[in-house]
Design a protein around this nucleic acid. Structure first.
Length: 484
RNA sequence: GGCCCCAUCGUCUAAUGGUUAGGACACGGGCUUUUCAAGCCUGUAACCAGGGUUCGACUCCCUGUGGGGUCACCA
């Protein structure tokens, strides 16, 4: 049987990193087995519809270079569907859920309940106060009564939890075998009074109909697993394999939330994290194929991934490590690649392509995210502003600094364009100039760097000369001489 | 509170009964050096506790403790 996995989010308008990792693992499993990876939209909560959310989600996955084999896709900006198991948006499947819910009613595994929300609420409060469980009154209604009242009374459909055994046994790929005491479950709702299904019914029906082989989802669903197992049993369907993934946590170990930082993939993209770095990082929360390495290409992950080796415990989202990871990926890019990627962050009215590429070449080891590029550009292009004493190297004095800068400027003045071709050539020339004059490296290079950058800490002078070009270099050098 | 899940350095993890408990981030030191980065070398740092099982437990079992999740006509 071909492997089929799905990512089934409710459309909230952004992709939570926890959901993203779930999708990623499902993607790995599907790709590893040559199976299908499916996107299904769970929009059965009509009160929480977010306009445009599906489009946004599809675009985000595209930015993350993840493609679905089935599900909603964007064609010329319009939402379409691909795949032969659709529709893939649950709101378009309501009749299907009604049909299956009715089947359960016919089989006496579900029944209509006419209690109002208020009544239920009252019962719940009574239970909390007294410990006396008064529930499921409608279960004892006769089939005939139920059928009659259904015609003109508002009602929901409840699953009839039958107490035929002490435990519900469940299997999970990451947690192993689980058993839940049967006594804890009430008759949960499968079809709401607005005719829409609840998650439990919809996901079970869809996963079955869409021939999903591995249900991969977050740990927050673990406690409702028995409900789903019972639903499969009531329908007489073979349940898929389940894998409940550990939660991604805030630094304080609670479920990752907006309150404590960015939770959306879109946020990290906007800050200039590379998709492949984010993927690598997120994949490693809860799982590491070898344990002695951190950088894995996607192909490698697909090859090595093993659901049964996913950690059972939650993992903190460690921003420091993401930063390191992103830097690693940034350093592997060529200057041209960085410049192309960086264009999204720096307007071309501010810097031309050639200069941006030079700046990228120089800043490569200093960038944590692409979002820092504008500041880097600014640091190169804005006229330096500093106090004259900064120009003086700790082992020299002002007079020496002035003489050194003067000599350097004079030397560069005489050079033609060839010397300015690249930072390495500039370095070679300037270093031999320093040696020929019997000068000391620090005495020349420190003041030169400050004159060019205006800062105590910055990229080196040769890199500045290269980026700025001959004219601007000389201008800044002479300005420094004047200051001294 | 009921039920469920979880428990290795501060953090992410490796280890599937026998290791000086390994790697990575962060942090400290050093090298390189014109500064800052990057790079290289290196240091500090962990098996939650108590009982078992076993010749031998981080690994298996029990209990406790701690943390988390979930208890909706939300997913």
């Amino acid at each position: 049987m071909p492997v089929r996995t799905r990512f089934a989010p409710s459309p909230t308008g952004y992709l939570h990193v926890g959901g993203y990792r779930t999708a990623l693992y499902a993607f790995y499993v599907a790709r590893q087995n040559g199976g299908a990876f499916i996107l299904r939209i769970e929009d059965t909560d009509r009160e929480r519809l977010v306009p445009g959310a599906v489009e946004a989600l599809v675009r985000t996955f595209a930015r993350m270079n993840m493609t679905f084999d089935e599900g909603p896709i964007l064609v010329d900006g319009a939402l379409k569907e691909q795949g032969s198991h659709g529709p893939y948006v649950q709101s378009a499947r309501v009749e299907l859920y009604k049909k299956y819910a009715q089947q359960l009613v016919d089989d006496r595994r579900a029944y209509p309940c006419f209690c109002s929300k208020k009544e239920i609420q009252t019962r719940r409060e009574t239970f909390e106060k007294t410990g006396i469980h008064v529930t499921d009154l409608c279960r004892s209604l006769s089939v005939e009564t139920g059928r009659v009242r259904m015609k003109n009374e508002s009602h929901v459909l409840r699953f009839s939890w039958s107490l035929r055994r002490d435990f519900v046994e469940c299997k999970d790929l990451v947690h192993g075998n689980l058993r839940f005491p049967n006594t804890d479950f009430d008759d949960f709702i499968i079809l709401k009074s607005d005719g829409f299904p609840t998650y439990h019914l919809a996901s079970v029906v869809d996963d079955h109909l869409m021939k999903i082989t591995h249900v991969i989802r977050g740990d927050e669903w673990l406690s409702s697993l028995p409900k789903h197992v019972m639903l499969y049993e009531a329908f007489g369907w073979q349940p898929p394999a389940f894998a409940h993934l550990p939660l991604i946590l805030n630094p304080d170990k609670t479920k990752l939330s907006k309150r404590q930082g960015d939770v959306a993939v879109e946020d990290y993209l906007a800050k200039g994290y590379l998709p492949e770095a984010l993927e690598n990082f997120v994949a490693l929360i809860g799982y590491n194929p070898t344990g002695d390495r951190e950088i894995y290409a996607r192909d490698e992950m697909i090859r090595l991934f093993d659901l049964t080796k996913v950690n059972a415990s939650g993992g903190v989202f460690n921003l420091e490590k993401l930063n390191w990871m992103n830097q690693q990926y940034l350093q592997k890019k060529t200057p041209a690649e960085l410049a192309a990627l960086g264009r999204a962050f720096v307007d071309d009215g501010i810097v031309d392509d050639a200069t941006l590429e030079k700046i990228c070449a120089v800043e490569r080891t200093r960038l944590t995210t692409l979002g820092e590029l504008p500041q880097a550009v600014e640091n190169f292009l804005a006229p330096p502003s500093y106090e004259a004493p900064l120009l003086v190297w700790k082992k020299a004095d002002a007079a020496d600094a002035k003489a050194s800068l003067d000599a350097l400027a004079a030397f560069l003045e005489t050079q033609d364009g060839a010397l300015f071709a690249d930072a390495k050539t500039i370095e070679t020339s300037v270093m031999s100039f320093i040696a020929a004059r019997g000068l000391k490296n620090g005495n020349v290079l420190w003041p030169a760097r400050v004159a060019l950058s205006g800062r105590a800490q910055s990229p080196g002078p040769f890199e500045f000369i290269w980026v700025l070009g001959k004219d601007e270099t000389l201008r800044r050098l002479r300005h420094a001489v004047d200051l001294l």
